[in-house]
Amino acid sequence: MHVVCHVITKLELGGAQEVAMQVVAGFDRRRFRPVLLAGPGGQLIADAHALEGVEVGTIPSLVREIRPLQDLRALWELVGAFRRLRPKIVHTHSSKAGILGRLAAWLAGVPCILHTIHGYGVTPAQPFWQQKALIALEWMVGRITTHWIAVSQADRRQGIEWGLFTASKVSVVRPGIDPTAFAARIESPERDRLRAMLGVAPDQLLVGTVSCLKPQKSPEDFVRVAALVCQRVPAARCVLVGDGALRPKVEALLLAQGLQDRVTLLGWRRDVAALLKAFDVFVLTSQWEGLPCAILEARASRIPIVATRVGGAAEAIVEGIQGTLCPAGDVRAMAERVCQILEDERFRADLRAGTQELPEEFTIQETLKQYQSLYAYLLHATRPSEDVMKLQPNRL
């Protein structure tokens, strides 16, 4: 049985975190012994420790912010953990854990080192010099990476363009979800009851989003879209599910726009599958992405989607069928499309009543299947011959 360590910076509510947890929970225990390592804190810590048969460890110094001395401690904490666990595979997620985790795995002599790109840490908001520095750092750590995984074809193409890897060293594996709860039907009386709990009357229309309140997701743009929509459609109400560092800015913008009675901040919720069934339109205003699981959840819930054309968003929905995509930051274009959908009752009803299922490639079952197949292939490909093993000392 091979030990497989997944490493992520923080177990907060997010697509990458939930994918990592579902994957380690679903491993074939006859072949793999799963371990999940993460920095301290996060809303999913208790959920992680509740995973049956999964060893969960905390790396105290592993934090998202760049702190050189603390990052060095985190590196050696990871090296120590890998030397104790002796994994055959280390699989990292997110930018900080990706850099430190892969370097630590190499120092500890781990034979297979993988990294999943859930969107790059290189973003449009960064100055040019910082972008170049981060690309160079990814390139250097890439030299010790056995294989890369991209969640979208867009990220795969970008990595090849930057020279981070060749086409043979990267696979596209989607960040799947379990669509069961999202695809479940809901009767009209139950939907009306759920909407009433959100303060939405039967004759009103609900526009919502689910995202962390951080720069990547641009929640201020959601408020600006909401302002334009509410101005044009008097029956419109909006909800924002999520929380984060930008909450004070979002609250101030709501006050400045006079939207306190039209837009509700729900904070973090664990009943997202139910809440989505109350939405008439789902909106995602991200500035950059890998492939957002929130779009997959909305698609599985049969809700019209208006999102920004970033990362793999165009690979997750069919334009004009499940929704539409607009340029990042184009608030007016997004608001216009939301209003068109709100004014098209038949389109909304037809989509909600439709039978189209989420494609298998976007399910967590397929993600798990592809990960395990890739692991088996890489373990076989990196297995040294008996003659070589006799000549090499144990690197651990």
Rank of each mutant, 00 (worst) to 15 (best):
A328T: 00
L255S: 14
V331W: 00
A278G: 05
R195Q: 06
M197S: 13
E190M: 02
T324I: 03
L240C: 13
S301G: 09
A274T: 15
D243Q: 11
A256I: 07
R247W: 02
V225E: 00
G290T: 11
L198K: 10
D192N: 07
R270Q: 13
S286V: 15
Q216C: 08
I305G: 07
A273F: 15
G320W: 15
G267N: 13
R191L: 02
G323P: 02
G323I: 05
V241W: 14
R302S: 08
T324Y: 07
Q260Y: 10
L276W: 06
G320L: 13
G199E: 05
V283P: 11
G267F: 11
L296M: 13
W268K: 10
A274N: 11
E220W: 10
P248L: 02
K214A: 11
T264I: 06
C230E: 00
V318Y: 13
G199W: 13
L194G: 01
I321S: 11
E251V: 04
V241T: 14
V207L: 06
L266S: 01
D261T: 01
V207P: 00
A307V: 14
P304R: 14
A300D: 06
D192T: 03
G208K: 11
A273Q: 12
K249I: 09
A227Y: 03
A273M: 14
L325S: 07
T285K: 12
A196G: 09
F282S: 07
G320R: 15
V210M: 07
A274K: 12
T264Y: 06
P215N: 09
L213P: 06
A201P: 04
A274V: 15
G244M: 04
L213Y: 03
L266W: 10
Q204L: 03
A335Y: 00
G208V: 02
V283N: 12
G267E: 12
Q204V: 10
F222A: 01
P292L: 14
V223D: 01
V250P: 02
S218W: 04
D192R: 13
A236Q: 04
L266G: 00
Q216E: 11
V318M: 14
V210F: 12
M197N: 05
S218F: 05
A245F: 15
V200N: 01
L296P: 01
C293A: 10
L275V: 14
R237I: 02
G267L: 10
E190A: 04
P327Y: 14
L291P: 07
L284K: 12
Q257Y: 10
V200G: 01
G258K: 09
A236R: 01
G312Q: 08
D192M: 04
D280K: 04
G208A: 14
A196D: 04
L291Q: 12
K217V: 06
M334N: 03
V200L: 00
A278S: 03
